[in-house]
């Protein structure tokens, strides 16, 4: 193993062991996140990690930052309040695909639209892990879950398309197979002055792997490799059941808390009300 900085300082020892199954991809994302923290030398006292409900959303418990474990789908709503009331805090949300794209879909598009300076990580395993393997709004067509045992007929959401259309200013997608790429994408997302979304395809061997006979965590990494391609190398037509990966947008547009600060300045000058 490559020797590097001791990343244990970024983990909350009191909460260990974590809840994830052997081979679950969520742990890899957390490891990548701690690397990003280390590379950025992030002030952990001034950082709040906000999760919704689900396996992915448990991450705040295991990180040595401030943590908020909220309600299913609502992480971005809580995070918006934290950031608006205290813009100097670094606020990072960690959500599952059901969390972010199904029950929390409305909050996601509005956070994108506001371009508020939050980092949103969506850990997409194509299934509902925590509740036992039901269909997610990301389950690929034809795939099985405990509520689509004959294969899903639903059209899945593409988080990247959704975020781009809704106005997010940093949008990237990668996989846990491409583990080494994750820290740099998260670092850019944290530094990005606006709404930054990183979707990470993550593996759920316990349900997605088992129900679809794709094998264990290791085998699912191969599935991730085989079902993705860099955005330059894949056409829209080839995208059915597959994902493009890479950075899809990185641009600077007026950010919400800064727009609000400017409004406060105007209100102070005009002194109305």
């Amino acid at each position: 193993m490559k020797s590097g900085p001791d990343l244990r300082q970024y983990l909350r020892q009191e909460s260990m062991p974590n809840v994830w199954c052997p081979g679950c991809g969520h742990g890899s994302v957390m490891a990548a996140l701690t690397r990003a923290f280390d590379n950025l030398q992030l002030d952990l006292d001034q950082t709040v990690v906000v999760g919704g409900i689900g396996c992915a959303s448990r991450m705040p418990f295991f990180l040595n930052t401030n943590g908020m474990h909220t309600t299913h789908g609502r992480a971005l709503a809580f995070a918006t309040g934290v950031k608006l009331a205290s813009p100097d805090l670094n606020v990072i949300t960690v959500m599952g695909d059901g969390d972010a794209l199904s029950i929390g879909g409305n909050h996601l598009i509005h956070a994108c639209r506001r371009n508020i300076d939050l980092t949103a990580l969506i850990l997409n395993n194509g299934i509902y892990g925590m509740t036992g393997g039901q269909l997610a709004p990301t389950t690929p067509q034809g795939f099985r879950s405990t509520t689509s045992s004959l294969g899903s007929i639903e059209v899945p959401f593409d988080a990247v398309d959704l975020a781009l259309a809704a106005g997010a200013t940093y949008v990237a997608r990668t996989t846990t197979f491409d583990f080494e790429e994750i820290p740099a994408l998260i670092e850019t997302a944290i530094k990005h002055p606006g709404f930054a979304l990183v979707e990470i395809l993550s593996q759920c061997p316990t349900y997605f792997g088992r129900l679809n006979r794709l094998g264990d965590g290791r085998a699912l990494l191969d599935y991730e490799r085989d079902s993705t391609a860099p955005q330059e190398e894949i056409t829209r037509e080839q995208l059915v059941g597959r994902f493009s990966v890479g950075v899809f947008r990185e641009e600077i547009r007026p950010e919400y808390t800064r727009r609000y600060a400017a409004l406060l300045e105007r209100a102070r000058r005009d002194g109305n009300a």
Binding site: R74, A79, V82, A85
Partner: peptide, 16 residues
């Protein structure tokens, strides 16, 4: 965007 978000934001703000 809705009342669920409103009370969520209120709680988040209170924790700062």
């Amino acid at each position: 965007e809705d009342e669920i978000a409103s009370i969520g934001a209120v709680i988040g703000a209170s924790w700062t």
